[in-house]
Design a protein around this nucleic acid. Structure first.
Lengths: 245, 245
DNA sequence: ACGATATGTTACCTATGGGTAATAAAAAGT
DNA sequence: ACTTTTTATTACCCATAGGTAACATATCGT
């Protein structure tokens, strides 16, 4: 409160400290979600207060109630944003063709990239028990649909011969587990880009399942049929995130 | 509060409602941890009150402070129990011999089984941000050791030729992710026994990495390796847990 | 311009639950 | 038996943070 309020450097908030406020409702709603999801991921849902969320948007707590019924609804809407992203990915893959393993690879790749986004990570970092019973039900249903999709692609792959026989349920658990975990260790500031991670995981996770072709890891080795590691001497310390969890 | 207190059916609490209280201190301390970890996993740390923990042990909240400095310390001690289990597993594997892939398989198997225990699951279900900075530091260090072990076995495997060349860091992430996720979906009441899961994951997760032998999945296992669940009729829907997460 | 509506603000309420003080009752020491 | 120490109980404190009421100010339709 010293001199004039020069507006904090990069403020991606539609509410300028005390100025023009004429944006569309939906735009503001989404701005709340973007601020909230970021804080929730940073500090954890229970440690984030609505005052903090509001403050980051240059408004005050009660203003939030113009857009949401309460804290848990904000959480749910964040989660839903992620779920919609996954749903649209699935819809697109379903629309296209390809063998079982091809579809599975597409899903793995897209899902891995999603886990590196805020709304994507919220799918696996938020605790559904923080939602109302009603919303938790919706969320569980969405999760089931996603899980079913993994299994369906695997089952289809086994049927069309592109995937070696295995238990679709456990295979789906193993794959989804790896992918979901990305949401826990990925850090924007790390050296691994989302696409690099997605590329690698697509190979790693479907390699053991594929019936025929063995995909090569994207290690740049121009020729080498047997993925030579691109000279990286694995000098330990690369640390991107928490490692095991 | 009607008739005489016949002591709740199966009370694994050293504190009988109003009777002999002469157990050793450590035994009680651990009883607190067992009750706490169970509640924390069931309902989530923030939704569990110390009153609930105490109530389950037939005591009152302040009594807990004879054994712990506060709620967060209970959480930390639960977490530590899990960490110690992993550490002892690692110690044992390190003591034995075998190729890189052999050690990795041992670790995967044991870790998978651990994820099906309360203290094991607490390793990945608890939020380290709920701990004091000091304890969180200890926990992070432990996690790093575990992660390093995965990478070391993989690196060793590549060196001794038992594992195909790959990026140890990402491979470790992929494997640990799958395993950690077990802690999220495994349910005691489900039909999958911990060993069945461990067996399957050991194959699934190291299959794509192994240089030579391709292990065979445990398919063909007659049916229940273990799971004679008291006559549960297994009607279609198998659902063990949340599926994707 | 001018009400009506949407969107903010300030000031407040209150349930919750971690933590503590004072005290009583066992266990253990002598 | 008695004191001392450990361990439990009852009664309380109080900071936090979600939520609400009452009021203010833009924005908009006409």
């Amino acid at each position: 409160m010293d001199s004039a309020p020069p507006a904090p450097p990069s403020s991606p908030s539609p509410w300028l400290p005390f100025e023009s406020r004429r944006r569309a409702r939906d735009e503001k709603r989404e701005a709340v979600l973007r601020a909230a999801v970021q804080l929730f991921l940073e500090q954890g849902y229970h440690r984030v207060t609505l005052n903090e969320v509001a403050e980051r948007l240059n408004i005050t707590k009660p203003a939030l109630y113009n857009y949401f019924r309460g804290k848990d609804e904000i959480l749910f809407e964040c989660w839903s944003m992620g779920a919609e992203l996954v749903d649209s990915v699935i819809t697109e893959i379903n629309a296209g063709g390809g063998s079982g393993v091809a579809k599975l690879r597409k899903l793995v790749h897209a899902y891995a990239e999603l886990m590196a986004t805020d709304f994507g990570a919220s799918l696996v970092r938020f605790d559904l028990r923080d939602l109302t019973e009603r919303n938790a039900g919706v969320a569980r249903a969405a999760k089931r649909r996603i899980d079913a999709t993994f299994r369906r692609y695997i089952t289809a792959g086994i049927a069309d011969g592109s995937i070696r026989p295995c238990d679709p349920k456990l295979a789906a658990f193993a794959i989804a587990g790896s992918l979901n975990w990305i949401g826990h260790w990925y850090r924007r500031e790390g050296k691994l880009s989302p696409t690099a991670i997605a590329d690698e995981f697509t190979v790693r996770l479907t390699d053991g399942l594929a019936a025929e072709v063995r995909l090569q890891a994207t290690k740049k080795t121009p020729r080498a049929p047997q993925g030579r590691n691109s000279g990286r001497k694995t000098t330990g310390k690369t640390r991107t995130g928490g490692g095991t969890g």
